[in-house]
C-alpha cells in the first residue's frame, strides 16, 4: 500500500487532477463501448420483431 490515507490517495501527490481525469475519461469511453452495442442490439431485435409480426398479419 503506497498511500497512508484516503485524502493522500485522492491527491495523488499533486497529480490528482491528471490521474483522475485520465482514468475518468477512460472509464467513460469503455462503458460507452459496452452500452452502445447492447442498445443497438436491443433496438434491432425490437424492430425486427415488429417487422415479422407485420408480415405474419399481412
Amino acid at each position: 500500500m503506497t498511500f497512508h490515507s484516503i485524502g493522500e490517495f485522492l491527491a495523488m501527490g499533486h497529480h490528482g487532477p491528471y490521474v483522475w481525469s485520465a482514468y475518468g475519461i477512460t472509464a467513460l469511453v469503455l462503458i460507452l463501448n459496452i452500452v452502445m452495442p447492447r442498445l443497438a442490439r436491443r433496438r434491432y431485435l425490437q424492430s425486427e420483431a415488429r417487422r415479422l409480426r407485420r408480415e405474419m398479419n399481412a
Binding site: 495523488m12 501527490g13 497529480h15 491528471y18 490521474v19 485520465a22 482514468y23 477512460t26
Partner: peptide
C-alpha cells in the same frame, strides 16, 4: 511521482 499511474491505461 503518481502521474506515472496513467501508464496503466495509456
Amino acid at each position: 511521482g503518481n502521474s506515472f499511474r496513467i501508464i496503466y491505461i495509456h
